[in-house]
């Protein structure tokens, strides 16, 4: 790999990391939704959980696919993803070179948690904007 290719690959590693994170997140949220549905509670919050978690999962999936398109534009295709002990190993092909990324499971979990926090912030921000707009209209 030449220096130019190295520079080109600079962004792809970050995109790959986000792509993996969003891919894990949207699947994990669906698994958790299934678990939440099975928990016996005094009242049924199914509609609330369904709305929140499905919305989160959809958002993560949309980001996942957007990143996949971006990676493809850079000539980058994921070949395999698998868990090896405490690591999550990703093999991807970039412009003919087979590359490897090794992520720690604990760190991926923490990063997914951070993405959930980011999504909650985005939703709250959007809600505040809507409320602000409604107040202006009423005024």
């Amino acid at each position: 790999m030449s220096g130019q290719q190295a520079r080109a690959g600079k962004g792809e590693q970050e995109l790959m990391r986000l792509y993996i994170l969003f891919g894990i997140l949207f699947r994990v949220v669906m698994v958790d939704l299934g678990r939440v549905r099975g928990v016996p509670l005094k009242l049924s919050y199914q509609a609330v959980f369904d709305w929140v978690l499905l919305e989160l999962s959809r958002w993560a999936e949309r980001q996942h696919h957007r990143l996949r398109r971006l990676l493809r534009q850079q000539g980058c295709v994921v070949v395999s993803c698998r868990r090896q002990g405490h690591a999550y190993v990703v093999h991807y092909r970039q412009q003919g070179y087979l590359r490897e990324a090794v992520y720690s499971i604990e760190i991926l979990r923490a990063e997914c948690q951070a993405l959930v926090g980011k999504w909650v912030d985005t939703i709250s921000e959007r809600r505040r904007h809507h409320e602000g707009d409604a107040c202006v209209e009423e005024g």
Binding site: G3, R7, R17, A101, Y103, I107
Partner: peptide, 22 residues
């Protein structure tokens, strides 16, 4: 020589460690 020059290679190592382990 596979990773550009010495300093570029060092930068790539730093970036990969940062992205994959934080």
């Amino acid at each position: 020589h596979l990773f550009g020059d010495v300093l570029q290679m060092a930068a790539q190592i730093r970036r990969r460690v940062w992205l994959e382990t934080g």
